[in-house]
Simulated scan of single mutants.
Amino acid sequence: MYRAGLGALFGSRLLLLEHVGRVTGARRYVVLEVVEHPAPDEYVIVSGFGERAQWYRNVLACPDVRVSTGLRRSVPAVATVMSQEEAAAVLERYARVHPRAWKNLRAVIERATGTTVDRLPMVRLKLTKGSREANR
């Protein structure tokens, strides 16, 4: 849907992250929930499957990514892993703002991983400065 230009149907709660496979170098795509949108050119996403998620491992190896969300399509961005303290603060805010969503999401993650969710790795996506799309 995102690649067809229909990402606006999902609003700003989801985004399509385009990243490069760390082994193959091939383009990879994943749709993720936006946990926080602190600035017009910044998004925070979470790895619900921890540090073993393939997209997470790929952005660690190559932080130059592209983001599609809402009306924005394939905007260049840089992915930066957040500290545990920053991630914990974001997760606390998310749980407070979206209590039902967090309750359901937490249950899904804990069932899938078999462990309790105390900390989740988060990534800040900063749209590239100077691009017309980043300033929308």
Rank of each mutant, 00 (worst) to 15 (best):
N58H: 04
V46N: 07
V59T: 08
V46E: 12
D64L: 03
V97D: 14
A89N: 03
W55Q: 10
F49P: 01
G25T: 07
R93F: 10
D64C: 01
V75Y: 05
R28M: 05
T80D: 12
D41V: 03
F49G: 05
R72S: 09
V35H: 07
L60D: 09
E33S: 12
H98L: 11
T80C: 10
S74A: 14
E36V: 05
Y56Q: 06
A61V: 13
V35R: 09
L32T: 06
L32F: 10
A95E: 13
T69E: 11
R52N: 11
A101H: 11
D41M: 04
L60T: 08
Q84S: 08
Q84K: 09
R100P: 01
R66V: 00
T69S: 15
S47V: 07
E42Q: 12
V78Q: 05
E86L: 03
V46Y: 02
G48S: 10
S74R: 10
E51L: 08
A101G: 08
R72K: 13
Y43H: 07
A88S: 11
V23P: 12
V59C: 05
R93Y: 10
R96G: 12
L91C: 08
T24P: 11
P99T: 00
M82W: 01
V90P: 03
Q54W: 10
T80H: 12
V44W: 03
P40A: 05
A87Q: 01
A88N: 06
A79Y: 00
R57N: 11
R27A: 15
F49S: 06
T24D: 15
E92D: 14
R57I: 10
E51Y: 09
A101D: 13
L71R: 15
